[in-house]
Simulated assay, not measured.
Amino acid sequence: MSAGDKIFAGSIPENYDRYMVPLIFESYARDMAQRAAALSPKAVLEMAAGSGVVTRALAPMLSPDARYVVTDLNQPMLDYAATRQEQDDRLTWRQADAQALPFEDAAFDLVCCQFGVMFFPDRPSAYREARRVLKPGGTFLFNAWDRIEENVFADDVTNALAEFFPDDPPRFMARTPHGYHDTALIRSDLAKAGFSNVTIETKAEESRAPSPHQVAVAYCQGTPLRNEIESRGADKLEAATEHAASAIARKHGSGEVAAKIQAQVIMAWT
């Protein structure tokens, strides 16, 4: 993972929430919220909350006396997430590094994280922190994208950009969001952190968008892939986006488009 892979700043948070969230994140957020709410937690910590799609889904499902702490490493994403959330006294927003959580031991019943662990430089360290702040019997719930070939639009965009930048193809999507799909590695990292009771479920969903252009904008301008494209020339963003849109249209048609997405859903217990 490069340093730029973690930068969600400028217009990325808004574009991420406007385009990426409905494209690939909302269905998994509903799934995570349902799994979390079924545990009836009274104290919840969310790591790497991004633009708050899980927060918006889970908060209404929690009991009136629950406590919900929402964190992210990127302050711009956290600030944006707070603007999208209705006023709720149960929620606390806090910038935090998942590898050095600023919370006491055994403070939470549930730690959840939607598609954030792929960005952690030292995942066993982050998992140890999750275990540390969980109460005995607590649950660590997270998910991670499966291999890029199982996530069709991400693969399409990556291949299109390899055509557009043949000498130096941007590989953010394959390198980071889809770079942590090996279930044996996930189990090993959790074991290093002290989690021995682990379940992993592979879950497929369908990604939909009203047009190929919206898919291209989502990936090329709503993720740190934008940073990679602009590093190859500030004037390249729109042309690269249009090239990706054309590639998707050739494969999927020019109207509403749909394709498979797939992720691993992991639950670990203390």
Rank of each mutant, 00 (worst) to 15 (best):
M1Q: 14
S2H: 15
G4C: 06
G4W: 11
I12N: 04
P13H: 10
E14W: 14
R18H: 10
M20T: 04
P22T: 06
I24E: 10
E26P: 00
M32H: 09
Q34G: 12
R35G: 01
R35M: 04
A37F: 06
A38S: 12
L39F: 06
P41M: 04
V44W: 00
L45M: 02
L45A: 02
E46I: 02
E46H: 10
E46N: 08
G50K: 05
S51H: 08
V53N: 07
V53E: 09
V54K: 05
V54D: 03
V54Q: 03
P60I: 08
S63I: 05
S63M: 08
P64K: 12
Y68A: 02
V70F: 01
D72H: 13
D72I: 08
L73N: 04
L73M: 08
L73P: 00
N74G: 04
L78K: 05
D79A: 10
A81V: 05
A81Y: 04
A82T: 08
R84C: 08
R84Y: 11
Q85P: 02
R90H: 13
T92W: 07
W93M: 01
Q95A: 06
P102T: 00
E104A: 04
E104D: 10
D105H: 10
D105V: 05
A106S: 11
A107W: 07
F108K: 02
D109P: 02
L110R: 03
Q114I: 07
R123F: 11
P124Q: 12
P124W: 10
Y127C: 04
R128N: 09
A130N: 01
R131Q: 12
G137D: 12
T139A: 14
F140S: 02
N143K: 08
D146W: 12
E149K: 14
E149P: 07
D155Y: 12
E163N: 15
E163T: 13
P166E: 07
P166L: 09
P169L: 06
P169N: 13
A174R: 14
A174E: 10
T176A: 05
H181W: 15
H181V: 07
A184E: 13
F195E: 00
N197S: 13
T202D: 11
A204V: 09
E205A: 15
E205H: 15
E206L: 15
S207R: 12
A209R: 03
P210W: 11
H213Q: 15
Q214S: 14
Q214N: 15
G222L: 04
T223K: 09
L225M: 11
R226W: 09
N227A: 13
N227T: 05
I229W: 08
E230V: 09
R232I: 03
G233D: 07
D235H: 15
D235P: 03
E238V: 11
T241A: 07
E242D: 13
S246V: 09
A247H: 13
A247L: 03
A247D: 01
G253R: 09
V257M: 09
A259D: 04
A263H: 06
Q264N: 11
I266R: 01
M267E: 15
